[in-house]
Design a protein around this nucleic acid. Structure first.
Lengths: 184, 184
DNA sequence: AAGTTTCTGAACACTCTGTTCGATAAAATG
DNA sequence: CATTTTATCGAACAGAGTGTTCAGAAACTT
């Protein structure tokens, strides 16, 4: 890839990241990003079709970092049988989020939250989808799935929204205590 | 109130409700609402400052209907001691939502979902806030609260998103089975 | 019927978007 | 190093949407 392209692209990413610390995504205009990034208007549009597409790609990249090493190498684990494995994975995710906290925190302000939620759900479904249904509670599988994943994502958002002050271990501990059908 | 004002106001509400069945809130323009409602441009702006304020007020009114008879008359109940009372209240809420399904379903498309979530959380906190913390699980109160309320709202959204096909009783039954600290 | 309030709709100033294009600068290639 | 390819710049433009203003018409009130 051309050095100039890389330079432009990171300039845009940095600009948006910076702006997100001050404004909600919807409030930010393309012109602001352009000015902040110090690039030409047409340059922006030669990289991204719209502001939303920029956000989309930023989230995609971020999540691919956050989850890159959590899914693949631990395929052999069976989270339904080994609760400690599940605990470890969830903590792992939270630590990754902690690494990206500046970005994630900003994205969670406003509409852009949806993109976050979408990618997060997608990932969790592929990570847990099959095994969650083995949990020992007498409710339909589909319900179980939405409950476990939904409450986890909500918990993570809550944790981020409160400033990531508590330790991941503590959050996961509380979360797992609240989950149904542990060892009965 | 002047009949003309009422007429205009309902025309605007109906117009937006109708449009929401076809488009997401963000896609709808003020002009579309005006055309659909058959009113003058300046008339719209003499009733609402912006499109967002219109949505805000619509949600507010809807929720005041949905929750009007659930909170006040049952103040004496202690949901922490009587799980059947809690179940009844939650089912009640779901039935109310069923009444407003056309509106609520539309609002849940897109950004406007946030307004829904905000009012819903607000209500549930005031309805359950104090009593949830009495649930018998060994996690911090604040966590308990966010978990119970968050997972409930997520469940309701999931239910709505899937087309409100299942009976409220069934949803609440599953939900309560998934809640921690029932009768241990 | 007279007075008050609301509605109308055209006109206006603004802001933001996304495109186009010729000129300029930087990188890649051989 | 010279040549070719590719990226950036930025001004200019058309288009869509927003929110305001105002004078006249229409509908309500007493």
């Amino acid at each position: 890839m051309d050095r100039r392209q890389i330079k432009t692209r990171t300039a845009i990413y940095d600009a948006l990241t910076g702006l997100l610390r001050k404004y909600r995504f919807e409030e930010i205009t393309v012109q602001q990003i352009i000015d902040e990034a110090n690039i030409g208007r047409s340059t922006f549009y030669s990289h991204f079709e719209t502001k939303d597409q920029l956000l989309e790609q930023m989230c995609k990249e971020m999540f691919s970092h956050v989850f890159s090493d959590t899914l693949a190498p631990e395929k052999s684990h069976d989270y339904s049988k080994n609760h400690e494995d599940m605990r470890a994975l969830l903590e792992h995710i939270l630590y990754h989020i902690l690494d990206h906290k500046e970005n994630i925190r900003s994205i969670l302000n406003g509409e852009s939250e949806k993109v976050f939620t979408r990618y997060f759900t997608e990932y969790l479904e592929s990570a847990f989808g099959e095994v969650i249904v083995h949990m020992d509670v007498d409710v339909p599988d589909a319900f179980k799935k939405q409950f476990v994943i939904g409450s986890f994502i909500h918990t993570v958002k809550w944790w981020i929204g409160k400033g990531l002050k508590e330790k991941p271990e503590k959050i996961i501990d509380s979360y797992m205590k609240c989950l149904p059908g542990k060892n009965e």
